[in-house]
Design a protein around this nucleic acid. Structure first.
Lengths: 171, 171
DNA sequence: ATCGTTGCAAACGTTTTGCATAAGG
DNA sequence: CCTTATGCAAAACGTTTGCAACGAT
């Protein structure tokens, strides 16, 4: 089977959901008898008003610093990101040795192209990929639960700038 | 992570190559004006007499310890593994936050099923996957150079033991 | 009044680095 | 000889943990 994903390279659209991330998280907290603290509410807001891909450091950078109101400590950021993943709000994967997060709730399944020059992540969808996953799993009697498919290379912009600028090519 | 391909889908066969890994590495060293030291020769031997998937720690464990002949220090192991990757002898990917290596030279391209219960890596090949990679890359004007496709889930053996055994399910 | 949560500091596991010494070419 | 490589110790890196104080229910 060949692969003509017919869509053009446009950003993926958010899909309709019945609850806001905060509502969904509150439900999750209740179901686990966890508490809805100021920090968690604030972080939900920060994370869902933001770009799709980020790591813990990038999130920390956009937060109020140590003296300010709404300051959240680094351990709490890590702990809360993990909860967001558990709650199904965020998706986590590893890139260059650190954890990268993206919206999961209200966002369609997709995979990534990763430009090793500018470190940009480009999303794409491929229904055929899921078919491969299913048939491979079946062949090996494997219960597939998730997958990570990252295509590494050079994006169009970086390829155009390539003639002069010399940088690292491989991860 | 162990590397037992299960009984049914047969393990991938090594493909014919004209040079031994050592020969190829020596060529690489010469081309870069690097030196063919005892440690590097010994590590080539250790790595290519071994299972496919391993991390730096697992390699260290099988090496002679500090007093012995042929002792290789941890920094040298890391430095040398990187060279093996540069030389095209090994392939590196990330799993659970650390680097995992496998034979690249003389070994067919493949991807992995990863059992999150027993941490086993199972190899598979899929020509269709490369077609997807190509068409997605083309669609996004992306120069694809490599990819990582890891399907996570539960292997057959672990699924059979599942009724009583309790362990972590997700990475 | 519980009991989960926070911030702090300190630890963690993996990988890398600076530097003096050793050794390949 | 000249340079690269090694081992050591220590640092770096991203992340996690123990704990006392705090705060939500």
């Amino acid at each position: 089977m060949t692969t003509e994903s017919t869509k053009n390279p446009e950003p993926l659209e958010a899909i309709a959901v019945s609850m806001t991330p905060l509502q969904r998280f509150e439900e999750y907290l209740q179901s686990k008898s966890l508490r809805n603290t100021e920090q968690r509410k604030f972080l939900i807001e920060q994370v869902f008003n933001r770009h799709e891909h980020f790591d813990a450091d990038q999130l920390m950078e956009q937060l109020p610093s140590k003296g300010s109101a709404n300051y959240v400590s680094r351990p709490t950021v890590y702990r809360t990101l993990r909860e967001f993943v558990d709650a199904g709000l965020l998706n986590r994967f590893e890139l260059d040795g650190r954890s990268v997060y993206e919206h999961d709730y209200g966002y369609p399944e997709h995979d990534h192209l990763y430009c090793t020059k500018c470190r940009k992540l480009i999303e794409f969808t491929s229904p055929e990929l899921l078919q491969i996953r299913e048939s491979v799993a079946k062949l090996h009697r494997f219960r597939a639960r998730d997958h990570r498919f990252i295509i590494e290379g050079t994006c169009d912009e970086c390829a155009k700038l390539r003639s002069k600028g010399r940088r690292q090519d491989r991860v």
